[in-house]
């Protein structure tokens, strides 16, 4: 167990160094001359974040943009990578799949999560019921991939099934199905895994938002004779609009970046690849970093509207304040 101790020491040393750096910043800020102190504070407090972001995200983003216009030997090749992307059938399938993911996952996770949150609101055992659905959030995507690969496991009809879904098919007199091989529906079976993971997140946030709706409003609506459905659409949904936006945004960005699920379950075969997976495959396995970077740019463009929308919301709010 000497090994464990050594690793612990590394962790402690690292944290000590980090604490020392932060302490130094604080000291410098507090000792700065009075006239300069406010500025020093702003610089000192922002510097660590800005420096890290510059080297870790901004610089790479610039480099990738350049790479997207080069071939695998690093010489510029104009728009070739983009031409490849929009002419190769495989690449087109990848783009189509990504669109399916990005539409279906946020929609279904949020929909199911919201429905569930409403259904169990103030029900007995609400906490436990919530925990059950939230649990997949705590599982890694690789772990989730293993779980669902097991659910979808196929065996020939003559053998005993070990995957639950095929067993259910057999119980109902059907033939076992190669869930992960049959395109195009296999993409939906992969999407189901992501929905399974993200629903808990949507549910927890939305549930809390619902509980935050002032009682008086709900009460008034009830006295006005609104039924459950009317209450839901005219009171609940508008009141939690802000939470809905955050949930949809977060899940959408997460979905666009999804990579582990596809990689563990089909490795992008059988027409299931998505942009994030293809990006990795092209850049690292096929040694075509230019194509990988081009795909990354596409991903970037796909997320852009969502972020812009959120940025506008943010700006509006700050102006109100």
């Amino acid at each position: 167990m000497e090994d464990v101790g050594e690793k612990l020491v590394q962790v402690v040393i690292a944290l000590a160094i980090f604490a020392a750096i932060i302490a130094l910043i604080m000291l410098l800020v507090d000792r700065a001359p009075k006239t300069f102190r406010d500025k020093a504070t702003i610089i000192g407090f922002l510097a660590p974040a800005v420096v890290l972001l510059a080297i870790g995200l901004i610089w790479p983003a610039i480099q990738t943009t350049y790479l997207a216009f080069t071939d695998r030997n690093g010489s510029p090749n104009g728009m070739d990578n983009f031409v490849w992307m929009f002419t190769q059938p495989e690449a087109l399938v990848t783009l189509r799949n990504t669109l399916l993911w990005v539409v279906l996952v946020p929609l279904m996770s949020t929909g199911i999560g919201l429905a569930y949150a409403v259904f169990i609101d103030r029900a007995r055992g609400e906490k436990a019921l919530k925990a059950l659905v939230f649990m997949p959030m705590a599982i890694s995507m690789v772990g989730a991939g293993v779980i669902w690969k097991f659910m979808y496991t196929y065996r020939g009809a003559e053998r005993e099934q070990i995957g639950l879904l095929n067993q259910i098919l057999v119980w109902f007199g059907g033939e076992p199905k190669q869930f992960l091989l049959d395109a195009p529906e296999n993409t939906f079976f992969l999407i189901a895994v992501m929905v399974w993971i993200q629903t808990g997140f949507a549910m927890v946030i939305l549930s809390a938002a619902i509980k935050g709706i002032p009682t008086e409003i709900v009460e008034a609506a009830r006295l006005d004779g609104a039924n459950g459905r009317q209450q839901f659409f005219s009171i609940t949904v508008p009141s939690i609009r802000g939470a809905l936006i955050v949930v949809v945004t977060t899940i959408t960005i997460g979905t666009l970046k999804v990579f582990d699920i596809v990689r563990t379950m089909t490795a992008g075969n059988f027409e299931t690849s998505v942009v994030a997976n293809e990006m990795y495959t092209q850049a690292f396995r096929a040694s075509e970093p230019g194509r990988g970077a081009a795909l990354a740019l596409i991903l970037f463009l796909m997320v852009l509207p969502i972020v812009l929308y959120n940025a506008r919301q943010l700006k509006k709010q700050r102006e109100i304040r």
Binding site: T281, Q282, R285
Partner: peptide
């Protein structure tokens, strides 16, 4: 072969081929 074929499209091509695509479609792609 170059990685783009030998470690990517040849592998996935064979997979698609077993999965039902015709020889012609696969070798062309």
């Amino acid at each position: 072969m170059p990685g783009a074929v030998g470690a990517n499209s040849f592998w996935s091509g064979v997979v698609e081929w077993i999965n039902g695509k015709s020889t012609k479609e696969v070798v062309d792609s």
